[in-house]
């Protein structure tokens, strides 16, 4: 068990150890979906939701695996559960709210290969969080991911209008912006202590 307070877990996951800018998790969607502000907001929301669901599932699986004494199955069962959770969420949203389903589009299935989700499940078991802490951790990580994605999209929308040499355009300039954002987030160090 881990004695951290819920508030410090949230601040740590969202700002100090931001999943994207400090742990480098979920870089692919971070670079891929951050070209437009609107899609970035939707993607952030979808990831937050899946993180919450899979965090709860991972907590349950970990208990079961510990009970039957098979921790080596952790990775395999986590990835299978995340993939099926995403599939389930997709089916559920499709049935209950077709509008939201259309709005999320291709981003929903792509969340399976987002390493931030698997990373979250692994970190929370490594840190030994209890149920409440795990949920707060998932919320914080999701909020941090959404924040980084939205900040990045805001900057990149402005960058479209800037003139720059050909060699810099595309991924290179996105990485430079990400580096500067990451430096800015270092200013949060010590907040959640």
């Amino acid at each position: 068990m881990n004695g951290e307070s819920l508030w410090s877990i949230f601040v740590n996951a969202a700002l100090v150890n931001n999943f994207v800018l400090a742990y480098f998790l979920g870089i692919c969607p971070f670079l891929g979906v951050s070209a437009k502000l609107e899609t970035a907001v939707r993607m952030g929301g979808a990831v937050m939701f899946v993180m919450l669901v899979s965090s709860v599932c991972a907590y349950g699986i970990n208990l079961v695996l510990l009970a039957i004494g098979a921790p080596f199955l952790k990775l395999i069962s986590f990835i299978v559960v995340i993939a099926s959770t995403v599939q389930l969420v997709e089916m559920f949203i499709k049935k209950t709210s077709p509008t939201l389903f259309r709005a999320l589009g291709i981003f929903l299935p792509l969340i399976t290969t987002n390493c931030a989700i698997l990373g979250l499940a692994l970190f929370q078991t490594n840190k030994g969080y209890d149920f409440g802490q795990a949920i707060v951790y998932a919320l914080g990580a999701g909020a941090g991911f959404a924040l980084a994605l939205i900040l990045m999209a805001g900057v990149r929308e402005k960058l479209e209008l800037a003139s720059m040499p050909n060699a810099v355009q595309g991924t290179a300039v996105a990485l430079l912006v990400a580096g500067i954002l990451s430096l800015a987030f270092m200013g949060f160090a010590g907040l959640g202590a």
Partner: peptide, 17 residues
């Protein structure tokens, strides 16, 4: 630190481009 990772990769990509 994390920031340096982004900058170094950006630097290599710039060179290759």
């Amino acid at each position: 630190l994390p920031g340096g990772g982004f900058f170094t990769l950006a630097g290599w990509l710039l060179l290759i481009n």
